[in-house]
Design a protein around this nucleic acid. Structure first.
Length: 969
DNA sequence: GCTATCACG
DNA sequence: GACGTACGTGATAGCT
């Protein structure tokens, strides 16, 4: 980390913060979560790899505010402890670890040594006890402690205590979920305070460790008993007075067992400490041993990162530099292409075409065993909501893929010979029945590229696919905005295949043709279809194994796992819901607009003295400026006159009647062509509703975008345009409900730039533009408020005196004076801008509060125009992107929260989330549910940043409902 | 396929 | 000191 950044953040001397890594528990989880990789010698290293990236990530946080100053790894040394002595059955029925995990245990030690980290392994002491002892010892010294684990037993330690050395805090970090666990999280999970957790655990027991607890008492009952009675002893004592019940009997009978369990779950906090706390200080990671280790196990991507950042050989280096300084490496044209695992070249001729049930069953069984399967669907058309399923392809490994045709007609098309036999295929119904358990199995990760599409296609066949991963979203979360010279910056499969695998997949048009000669996929001959479809699945499989391990290295795990990945099925469901539009209303408006256009057109021709194409800016410009002689400059390299709204309004102000008529004509044409006509055409004949498609990778900042049709730009600002909103309606008996974040970007700016005056204003519920006007001008009236509003937005968008001058119609000097005044009144803003730009120049990317990166390669451009443009975008991206992260989190939590409140889908109805418009969510719900649903929706939205981010400003929500989208505002 | 325009946040 | 600069999108018409 560069000196200036640390100087800014580290004004106070950093508090000691000990990280204790529960290594043994981690590798079990890593094993079950990660793909079964092997090193060059064939030793399985999937869990080791996960462990290595975890340590890397922790070391990366070294200089961060809440990062480690001290770190140690604790491992279990032997299977015997004091618990076996008092209870021989303890952990007696543990199954042996999986065969391919056993050889990884010693490698965990190697990995730890490779990072030069202290390693604690004591015989006859369990890791949990050792962790507890170290945690308490550090806490007593007034240190903060983070236990890197998600073991529920360790949650007993969470909390804050005043020791001889000051106040020390113990929390936990679940690196797989990237979640901090503190008192509220424990309370949420177990319903009791951490210090009461031992009592709950004693009652409920633990089948894995063979802790008996009380038979028939599970987490729910245990938590209830303890929270009601205060403690285990009190709960047991209260049992004789309970009214007769099964539970009473069990408590009376199980008293001894519970008391034994209480001892077993108690952590020993007084183990002798083999390594002194001070010796756990983390100064830096010497690169030598680490490089050797990474190399030996074929962790090429990590090796490369280490090389890229290590500087002079042998120098002790801080991993923060190593892992983060990726700019240099990635700026090279091939920089983004990492060494690949040793896969054979893709061979399209090797794919299987699955045409009978037996073969399909075998593929499905193998997929179940493999636990990770790449899936791709082929369909009759692009629109997922209308598309029919034509086939499914699966990939289980490199060179191990198949295509399952399901809806193919005979080659050359169905129309020409309707009696032609179809190719042999597993009947669709049968295939769906066989695939459903695989695609819905919790134990198997289904990997897609743009899975939202496939989810929608498969949902039509009653398959609720999950859990999924998505290589398109992974790519977006790591590489948004990143453009490599000559390689492009998109996230399409073909592009990623070129970029990361160096392989050009078969082009769709090669298979189906293009333009008028295009044929539907169902008419492609099976051999060709198999090559194309199975290749897509295999490419997805390979991309997954390339991209997934990169996620932690790029710091993209949190945004992928906590924001974007959970959103995929949610957005898919919104698309399937669609929204009802009133066709008659739209049609009426179309006619009305057409009549008006004809009238205005006549008037324009009269003014112009001739007929011309009003919609042609070129012709219009010539009429206005050449023929009629109005003043107005040329524009751009096209040499064409500008005739946009600003120009025409100016002309209108100067008395040119034709200008306002053209504006009116344009407005009508826009509304008719883009909305009233197009929306009618977009109604799905099967559902009678309009189904937009959201792009999850469309906007570099992390926002969604909406296409076919775009429902994120339906008019609202003018009365005439709002008539179109009136055509968006609920089904009978329902209403539409709109909930939006009020001024979310300004609130985030106030938080992120730490502007006290703005934070106060939001906390007090003031009108923010009025407050700005008061700060800037000392008085608030219509004019000063309007100017303040303009300036507030200018700030969000990256300000310039010329831009502001243009908007406010003042001289740039005066605009500059206003900017200076703004910075003076809100000093945090200028600091934020300067700091943000410094960071982007240094790192190459901006970051949101949730860690979403947007890359700005042109921030260093020699072209001042280009560079300035990047700077403005870079100032805006963290704010716009954080807002996007927040509403995405709200969306992912919304339906579960409504379901918890009993408001979920009921006989196909209930509350349905239909649309997202950046800071607004639109729902359709039975009128009778409005009162119950509104507070739930409001709470989920208002709390969406928590617990990951605690904002200094409240998030205000405005909610309305009515018989149309317009009425809901 | 590109440019200009304008709808939204 | 300049920069025919407010940020982020998508659809349409006209024109090459």
């Amino acid at each position: 980390m560069s000196e200036n950044t640390s100087a800014e953040s580290a004004t106070d001397s950093p508090k000691n913060h000990l990280y204790l890594v529960d290594g043994s528990a981690y590798i079990f989880r890593a094993y079950h979560r990660l793909p079964p990789l092997t090193n060059p010698e064939g030793t399985p290293v999937g869990a080791v790899y996960g462990y290595t990236t975890m340590l890397w990530k922790l070391a990366e946080d070294l200089d961060k505010a809440d990062g480690p100053t001290h770190l140690a790894v604790i491992l279990d040394k032997s299977s015997h402890s004091f618990r076996n002595d008092i209870y021989p059955e303890y952990k007696a029925h543990r199954p042996d670890p999986p065969e391919d995990l056993v050889p990884q245990f010693p490698l965990i030690r190697d990995a730890t040594r490779a990072f030069s980290l202290p390693l604690v392994e004591e015989p006859d002491v369990e890791a949990d006890d050792m962790i507890a002892s170290y945690a308490r010892a550090a806490q007593a010294e007034g240190w903060d402690v983070t236990i890197v684990s998600s073991d529920k037993d360790l949650m007993q330690l969470v909390g804050e205590l005043e020791g001889p050395g000051g106040k020390g805090r113990i929390d936990m970090l679940d690196t797989m979920k990237d979640a901090r666990i503190f008192i509220p999280e424990v309370e949420e999970k177990f319903g009791v305070r951490p210090e009461q957790l031992g009592d709950v655990l004693a009652l409920m027991g633990d089948s894995v460790d063979n802790i008996p607890g009380i038979y028939g008492v599970g987490p729910k009952t245990a938590s209830k008993l303890i929270s009601e009675n205060g403690s285990l002893a009190a709960a047991l004592d209260a049992a004789p007075d309970m009214k007769k019940s099964k539970l009473k009997e069990r408590l009376l009978e199980g008293r001894e067992s519970a008391e034994l369990s209480r001892v077993l779950v108690t952590l020993r906090e007084d183990c002798p400490l083999p390594i002194a706390l001070d010796d756990m200080r983390l100064d830096g990671i010497p690169p030598g041993p680490l490089a050797e280790f990474l190399e030996a196990h074929g962790f090429h991507s990590l090796s490369k990162r280490l090389e890229a950042g290590s500087g002079s050989p042998g120098r002790k280096t801080n991993l923060d530099n190593v892992a983060r300084d990726t700019k240099g490496a990635d700026a090279a044209p091939e920089g983004n292409r990492q060494p690949l695992p040793e896969w054979p070249a893709i061979d399209r001729s090797a794919y299987a075409c699955v045409q009978d049930e037996a073969a399909l069953e075998e593929w499905i069984a193998r997929a179940m065993a493999t636990r990770i399967v790449a899936v791709d669907t082929e369909t009759s058309e692009l629109d997922a909501i209308r598309a029919d399923l034509v086939g499914v392809s699966l990939a289980l490994g490199a060179g191990d893929a198949c295509y399952i045709p399901l809806g193919h007609l005979n080659e050359g098309g169905g129309g020409s010979d309707m009696f032609a036999e179809k190719p042999k295929q597993v009947p669709l119904e049968k295939a769906i029945a066989l695939l459903k358990p695989l695609l819905e199995s919790d134990a198997v990760i289904k990997v897609f590229h743009n899975g939202k599409y496939d989810l929608n296609v498969l949902a039509r066949h009653g398959i609720a696919v999950g859990p999924i991963d998505d290589t398109m979203i992974m790519s977006f979360d790591m590489d948004a905005g990143r453009q490599l010279e000559g390689i492009g910056g998109g996230h399409g499969m073909d592009e990623l295949s070129e970029r990361h695998l160096g392989h050009t997949p078969m082009a769709f048009k090669e298979v189906c043709g293009t333009g008028k000669k295009a044929i539907p996929f169902g008419e492609v001959p099976l051999d060709k279809a198999t090559e194309y479809a199975a290749e897509d699945a295999e490419v997805t499989w390979r991309l997954y194994h390339h991209l997934k391990p990169r996620l932690p290295l790029e710091g993209a795990v949190r945004v992928y796992e906590r924001v974007d990945r959970p959103l995929i099925p949610v957005v898919a469901q919104m698309e399937r819901h669609g929204i009802k539009v009133d066709r008659a209303q739209l049609s009426r408006l179309s006619e009305e607009f057409a009549t008006e256009m004809a009238r205005v057109e006549k008037e324009i021709f009269a003014e112009a003295g001739q007929e011309f194409t009003i919609g042609s800016p070129k012709q219009l410009g010539e009429i206005l400026f050449d023929k009629l002689g109005y003043k107005g400059g040329r524009k751009g390299k096209s040499g064409q006159y500008s005739t946009d709204q600003a120009v025409l309004e100016k002309l209108d102000g100067e008395g040119a009647a034709i200008a306002s008529k053209v504006l009116e004509y344009r407005q009508l044409a826009k509304l008719k062509n883009t909305y009233t006509d197009a929306l009618q055409a977009a109604i799905n004949p099967d559902t009678g509703r309009v189904h937009t498609s959201y792009s999850l990778t469309g906007a570099q900042t992390g926002r969604l975008s909406s296409t076919d049709p775009n429902l994120q730009n339906i008019p609202i600002r003018t009365a005439i345009g709002r008539q179109i909103r009136e055509a968006f309606v609920p089904e009978d008996g329902n209403v539409l409900l709109a909930a939006d974040y009020s001024q979310i970007e300004l609130r985030l700016a106030a938080h992120m730039a730490d502007v006290d005056a703005l934070k106060e204003a939001f906390a007090a519920g003031e009108d923010i533009h009025s407050r700005t006007a008061r700060e800037m001008y000392g008085e608030v009236d219509r004019d000063t408020r309007a100017a303040a509003k303009t300036i507030n937005f200018a700030i969000l968008y990256g300000i310039s005196r010329w831009g502001l001058a243009g908007r406010l119609d003042v001289e740039p000097d005066e605009a500059q004076a206003m900017i200076d005044r703004y910075f003076e009144r809100f000093p945090g803003i200028q600091k934020y801008i300067v700091h943000t730009l410094e960071r982007v120049r240094e790192k190459g990317y901006s970051e949101t509060l949730f860690g979403r990166k947007t890359w700005f390669p042109r921030i260093t451009s020699k072209n001042p125009n280009e560079r300035a443009g990047s700077e403005r975008a870079a100032i805006n991206a963290p704010i716009q992107g954080t807002s996007a992260d927040i509403i995405k989190r709200a969306m992912a939590r919304m339906m579960p929260a409504l379901e918890d409140a009993g408001l979920g889908p009921r006989d196909g109805k209930g509350v349905r989330m239909l649309l997202q418009v950046h800071d607004e969510l639109v729902f359709e719900l039975p009128e009778g549910d409005v009162a119950a649903a509104s507070p739930v929706i409001e709470r989920v939205m208002a709390e969406a940043a928590l617990p990951a981010v605690q904002l200094d400003v409240p998030l205000g929500i405005e909610i309305g409902h009515g018989a149309s989208w317009d009425a809901a505002h």
